[in-house]
């Protein structure tokens, strides 16, 4: 069975059914970027508790299902627009980015591309540079092409090597420049607003598998946590080689984030055994049968 990494998924918004389905589909590790919660936070304490959740409770929750949970920590672009709050968040970030299992600074970048977003993006690039951590960059939904180019320009300006930067949410319009400039090109297979996976197959056919990888970006919106394994299956059916699928759905994401020194393949739990206990807790508590989502509807439009 193939194994997968989903290098962008907001597990705090997902259920245990999702965790069971992920593990069943072969996902052995996930990376959860710090993001906003669907509505703005008003206190720095909310950020602190959220970051603590990412390195504490959520990490444990995933482990119960045999999934290694990592995260990236950062101030997202939307909430960077509240300057008073952003200042306080910047103060607590150093408490978190050096933690075990924090594999990058993210997801940061531009949303509306305001002056404040720019300010905190740059400050966090400096933080990443100092900690020698990869940067996971959220590219904007609106005015995307310009926002993506600008994100890369600013990284270069701050002296950050392209191989330490993951440009996320790419599409047909941004991928070429991202690859040409030597950055990692990540794609979010997310229904309606980001990439569909049939389009993703075409991108891999056209650009190959070097420095390209995919994620689900599944969160509190209508999204699909199984986007990575489903897309892998679709790629196989449409003639993409197993080697390329492995690179796009596992190895490239690993190589990009393992640069943090905080992610080790040897920590993954590879053998799937339904009776196995993870961290002392049975996955199948109370004698329940596992709920396994079928992979029969694998097209994500």
């Amino acid at each position: 069975m193939m194994k997968f990494i989903d290098p962008h998924i907001h597990c705090v918004s997902r259920t245990t059914d999702d965790y069971e389905a992920l593990r069943q589909a072969g996902v052995v590790a996930v990376i959860e970027p710090a993001f906003w919660l669907g509505q703005p936070r008003t206190e720095v304490g909310s950020f602190k508790d959220y970051f603590s959740t990412l390195i504490g409770w959520e990490r444990f929750r995933a482990s119960q299902f045999g999934i290694r949970h990592y995260c990236t920590i950062g101030l997202n672009s939307k909430e960077a627009n509240n300057e008073a709050l952003a200042e306080q968040v910047m103060e607590i970030l150093p408490l978190y980015i050096y933690k075990e299992g924090v594999v990058g600074v993210g997801e940061i970048g531009y949303d509306d591309q305001t002056a404040l977003e720019d300010k905190y993006f740059r400050l966090q690039l400096e933080l990443a540079k100092e900690a020698n951590l990869p940067v996971q960059i959220h590219t904007p939904h609106r005015n995307k092409k310009v926002g993506t180019s600008r994100s890369m320009d600013v990284c270069i300006e701050h002296g950050i090597a392209p191989q330490m930067v993951i440009i996320d949410h790419n599409n047909e319009e941004t991928v070429k420049e991202t690859l040409d400039r030597g950055f990692w090109a990540a794609f979010s297979i997310y229904p309606s607003t980001k990439m569909g996976n049939e389009r993703m197959v075409e991108i891999v056919k056209k650009y190959g598998s070097e420095r390209i990888f995919i994620n689900s970006a599944a969160d509190w919106g209508i999204s699909d946590p199984l986007a990575v394994p489903k897309t892998a299956q679709l790629m196989a059916e449409r003639g993409i080689s197993e080697k390329d699928i492995h690179l796009v759905c596992y190895q490239n994401a690993y190589d990009a984030f393992a640069q943090s020194g905080q992610m080790h393949e040897s920590d993954f739990i590879v053998e799937i055994d339904q009776s196995q206990r993870f961290n002392g807790n049975s996955v199948l508590r109370g004698g329940r049968d596992p709920k396994i989502e079928k992979l029969d509807s694998k097209i994500i439009k």
């Binding site: 602190k48 603590s52 390195i55 504490g56 990490r59 408490l95 933690k99 075990e100």
Partner: peptide, 9 residues
């Protein structure tokens, strides 16, 4: 304690 990850706790 307040900002600890699992192994630190």
């Amino acid at each position: 304690f307040q900002t600890a990850e699992v192994n630190e706790l």
